[in-house]
Structures are given as structure tokens and as C-alpha cells.
Design a protein around this nucleic acid. Structure first.
Lengths: 235, 235
DNA sequence: ATACTTATTGTATATTAAACAATAATAAAA
DNA sequence: TTTTATTATTGTTTAATATACAATAAGTAT
């Protein structure tokens, strides 16, 4: 007997998907519409879902993200679990869950994942029942999101800040395949909440063997073009 | 209506409790006996339990640790969740769970916590149904423990290593209230898997304003006594 | 008194981080 | 075609931090 595609309505996963547009960090959110007695209510939530009964957590995170965006093979990392019993007590959230899952919903513990993706990757924004979109992280942090998703995004942001601190390789998950040192520096400073000196930053990067110059220059800019670099994995 | 003391049999917490005896890291484990057809089987497990239906995860971790050891007000920190569906498939583990909880047990997702405690704290080792004991971490890492508890300990160890790296204050959770610089250095090196130079380590510690010398010396040693220090919290 | 054990301390060198601005290349404007 | 505007690129000096290295002090045990 298989439990395949039978939901476990007690545990869910939520993905905080970060992107970088060359200037700012972005987060991928799902826009939802709730039909209430007195009309329609719009808000946003993280891509996430309850897990299947015999599915591992990491597998569930990949699957759900793929279902909601079409994305595959992306950097995904578990960072924290959220179990406040009140997190699933908002009647609007319960109504929405019971409508979309057709299950009786009680308390749900959710496991938070962060994903880092190149913002130019093709995303299936429109799905049968959902619409995904990129939003400015700074704006999102001020919004009222579904469930405890604001708190989850906060924690996820802390997590990637902390981790990119000790693992610079993660930065390149967010950059395009070919990038300039300026883009790298702006991303670095955005994540670290710092303002690096341009010369010192060039020196730092020159010592990273995994950042390699290309015989190619930036195009389409109305000033001196910068050299392009690529990331090369090393052990 | 209250859900108090109603179990949620889908989610549990497990605590990896670390101690330090001046030489080595220790882990607190629960010894259990399983009655099988052909006799008794003994093994060890982490202190942990399924949570209550309306209980927060952090609260559950504190409560369970208190119930199993009598400990209160200790440093407890969530580090990772474990949801492999096979983690609760060992018949011996299921039998034991169903006997101790009187519930039908299916898949359980567990949330891992680490605790750091002073090894000389009074612990209620013997309880009605359980016995707790300190074990050498190195020995434990070679044992076959219940469920996926070996994996959980591994991850918990990684977590505290990582965190003490960037937050030296955590070291003092494991040391006695009065300690020598040698003890501090041995703990530091055990955690960091390093061998610090004695002179350089003294210099490093001299710059930590939260390590303050006392007018008191070590006693009961058969050689020159070392000065005692205490930890003083700072912001 | 002597041997044994651990505690305590300083200096010189290497590495890393931080501060700081002038020139080069290109596109757009005049 | 010259000038202006914009961003790219590059070195040196100084400060801070980390590393390597061993002799003497203090107390216990024989």
C-alpha cells in the first residue's frame, strides 16, 4: 500500500525564495484571493504547502516550489521551523486552507526553507490556481502577509545573511552567469548591510579563485563598459 | 475548551544536551528497555517527546527537558527538523512509542534542539519511567541509538561548533561558574577541533571583557594552582 | 633539598583589513 | 570634433590581528 499523494495536514513547508535584480533583493510571493461574506480579500503568502504522508521534508520543499513556479534544481536549505499554535488561527487563513486542500485543518507546524535563484530564470508565474510575483524585500517586510509569513521571511533573511558571511559561494546563486564586479559588490553590500570600499573589494575578489574574468565586456550601458566575470566551482 | 495535555502525535521535539567535564564533551541520553518476544532489549535515546496539541515548539522543548531531568532555565536553541518518513519505521521504536504514549503512532516529524548546561548542575537522573545519564560524546557518536538520534546528535554538534565560533559567550554555558583559563582553552579547542597556543590564548582571553579574574585560586590540585575567573554578561 | 607538574608571561613576524584618489574608457551632449 | 558626464580600474600606506616560539614562577610530592 502506498501513501502517495495523501496529505499530512499537520506539517507544511514554506519557501522564502530570494532573487537579486542588480540593485535590490527580491522575494517571490504568491498572490491569493479569499472569498469572504462581504466580498473579495487579496493578500500575499509564501510559496508553500502541507507535505505528503510519506514524503521527506527536503523533497516536499523541492516539489512544492516546482509546482508553484516550475523551478527545478535550485539551492534550497532548511533554516527554521515554526510551531506557534496561533499561527494557523486566523479565520481567513483557515478558510483559505480548507478551500484549497479540501481537508479539515487544525494546527500546522511549518518548516522554513530558503531558496536562492537567478532572477532571470524562467518562472511559470501563472498557474491554474495561483499567481507568483517578485516583490521588493524591503516593501514585503512592511506588509501584512498571510499566517506568520512575515516572521518566516525575517528569519530566512537572517539565515542567508549569516550564511553568506561564512560561505561567499552562495552569492553566485543570486547573480547572473556573467556578472560585473560592481554587481557582485552591490549584492555583497546589500546582504551584509555594509558599504565596501571599491578598491579594497576588487582586491578581495582578486583573491577568490572561483571568480574568473571573461574576454567579454558589459554591453548596453552609456558609459565605460565593465569586464564580465563568471563563477567557477572549486572545492 | 482547552487542548491542554492532549498530545499531537505528528510532531515531536528532541534535545541534544551537551555538558563538559573539564576534558571532554558529554551528551545526556535516556536509557530505555524494550520488552520484545524473545526478551529485553536495552538502548539509548535522546530526551524528547511528542508535543501537546496547543503547545509552542520552544515551550515543548523546555517542558520535556524539565520532565526528564528536572532542569529549568537552560540555554535551548532550535537547530534543525528531521522528517524522513523512515525515521519512525523501526518496529522496535514504534512498539516503544505506542507503549509509552498509549497512542497509535504513524510518521513523526521531530524538531531538534540543543541545550548547553553546566555538568555539575543537579539532574534528576532517575524518574518514574526513565533513567538519564551522561555519556562521552565520542563514544555516543559510534553507538546505534534509537530512531535517527545519531544523525540528530551529529547535526546538533555541527550547530554548536558553528555557533560558538561566532558567539564565544556560549562557551560559558558549559563551564562551571568559576573556571580556569586552562579549562576554557580545553573547551574551546574541543569545540573548535583545534590546539591553541597557550600564550596566544591567554592574550585572546585578556581582550574579552566578559572574562573577569577573581581573587581566588583553584584548590585540590597537586601542582601550582591556577587563578579562577568568572563570566560576566555584557551587551 | 630536589624533582615534578602546571601556570604565567613577551616579542618579533606575518597576515589581513582599512583608509584613501587619480587616471582610463566610453557614450552623450554641445 | 571637442567637451562633459559617468562609471571602471588600479596601489600604497597604516592599523589591526593572528601566529610562532620558550623561559621562569609557584606550588606539591618525594
Amino acid at each position: 500500500m502506498s501513501n502517495e499523494n495523501i496529505y499530512n495536514p499537520h506539517v507544511s513547508i514554506d519557501c522564502v525564495v530570494f532573487g537579486f535584480n542588480g540593485e535590490k533583493l527580491k522575494v517571490l510571493l504568491i498572490e491569493r484571493t479569499i472569498k469572504e461574506n462581504n466580498g473579495l480579500y487579496n493578500d500575499k503568502k509564501l510559496p508553500g504547502s502541507i507535505i505528503f504522508a510519506d514524503e521527506d521534508l527536503d523533497t516536499a520543499a523541492s516539489r512544492v516550489l516546482n509546482e508553484l513556479t516550475g523551478l527545478k534544481n535550485i539551492y534550497l536549505s532548511q533554516f527554521h521551523s515554526f510551531g506557534n499554535p496561533k499561527r494557523t488561527e486566523n479565520p481567513r487563513d483557515i478558510l483559505w486552507l480548507e478551500n484549497t486542500t479540501q481537508l479539515k485543518i487544525g494546527r500546522i507546524v511549518t518548516v522554513g526553507y530558503v531558496a536562492l535563484i537567478k532572477i532571470d530564470r524562467k518562472i511559470q508565474f501563472k498557474n491554474e490556481n495561483t499567481t507568483a510575483n517578485w516583490f521588493d524585500l524591503n516593501e514585503v517586510l512592511k506588509m501584512n502577509l498571510a499566517f506568520d509569513h512575515s516572521e518566516i521571511i525575517h528569519k530566512g533573511l537572517e539565515y542567508i545573511r549569516h550564511n553568506m558571511d561564512i560561505e561567499p559561494h552562495l552569492l553566485f546563486e543570486l547573480l547572473p552567469r556573467k556578472f560585473t564586479i560592481s554587481q557582485l559588490r552591490i549584492l555583497y553590500d546589500t546582504v551584509h548591510q555594509s558599504r565596501s570600499d571599491v578598491r579594497n573589494f576588487q582586491k578581495k575578489v582578486a583573491q577568490w579563485p572561483y571568480v574568473v574574468p571573461l574576454d567579454e565586456m558589459e554591453t548596453g550601458v552609456s558609459h565605460r563598459a565593465a569586464r564580465l566575470y563568471k563563477y567557477r566551482k572549486t572545492k
